[in-house]
């Protein structure tokens, strides 16, 4: 697992795309930090987190698109799938590599925290909590992106497909607002990522939200292993 993880991170940062995405993410986050924190002279990092959540919807498809598509296209998956490792080791290795890369992206907010702490008092428990929330929210999206990447050998299709799905998931709570049926409304709210992420941005870490995101991660990692299991039999 660690072998796969290391290779993935190295491969990601050996192409320019890794640096471009990192630069774009930090630039956008910096802009929001400037507008919502420095301009208004508040020590509130919440809006920055909210904005980063939205930017992640654009970032993550481009991070996860190559995870399995590239191996399928280059046939290197034959080496991975005939090596004496389990499918879970393979899938978790890939998943955690994206989690690490995402963590590097998101870690910029901790830098902002330190910056703000020079001028005013930062509520560290809240900031750390927000960071964990970002990772939960991002992890669920990465698992979905990885799953979609395992379905195609075309990276562009993987990226666009993931983007479409994440965007759809992102507007679930808006859809919920206009639905009359209370049961469907409640269901949509329950599976809405944004709704749960919002709790984190308030600095509240609720067990049910953590369990929700971990379940999504587990589910889509599991689905990814099933894709390979199923393909062997097709």
């Amino acid at each position: 697992m660690a072998t796969i993880l290391r290779r993935e991170i190295r491969a990601y940062f050996s192409s320019p795309i890794g640096y471009i995405l990192l630069a774009a993410f930090w630039a956008l986050a910096g802009w929001y930090f400037y507008v919502s924190v420095l301009m208004t002279a508040t020590a509130e990092l919440r809006n920055v987190y909210n904005a980063m959540g939205t930017i992640s919807i654009f970032l993550i498809p481009m991070m996860t698109m190559r995870l399995f598509s590239e191996d399928k296209r280059l046939k290197t998956e034959q080496a991975l799938l005939t090596a004496p490792i389990s499918l879970w080791e393979l899938v978790l290795g890939k998943f955690l590599s994206s989690m690490c890369i995402y963590a590097i992206n998101v870690s910029i907010v901790l830098v902002y925290g330190i910056t703000v702490s020079i001028f005013s008092k930062v509520e560290w428990p809240v900031t750390i909590g927000l960071f964990i929330g970002m990772m939960m929210f991002g992890g669920a999206m990465i698992a979905i992106g990885m799953f979609i990447s395992s379905l195609t050998e075309n990276q562009i299709i993987a990226a666009i497909g993931t983007f479409a799905v994440l965007l759809s998931v992102g507007i679930l709570d808006n859809v919920a607002k206009i639905v009359d049926n209370s049961l469907i409304k409640a269901f949509l709210y329950a599976i809405s990522f944004n709704n749960r992420f919002y709790d984190f941005t308030l600095g509240v870490i609720q067990l049910k939200d953590v369990v929700f995101f971990l379940s999504v991660m587990f589910l889509f990692c599991y689905f990814t292993t099933r894709v390979f299991e199923r393909r062997r039999y097709s």
Binding site: A2, S14, L74, K75, T76, Q78, A79, L80, I85
Partner: peptide, 30 residues
Amino acid sequence: KKHIGYLPEMPPLYVDMTVHEYLDFLYELK
């Protein structure tokens, strides 16, 4: 699978790696 060494029709090479890195990777993978 521990008993098998497999060379498929198209060698499964990570072309962005050096030979050294690639063999290291397989060494750890196996």
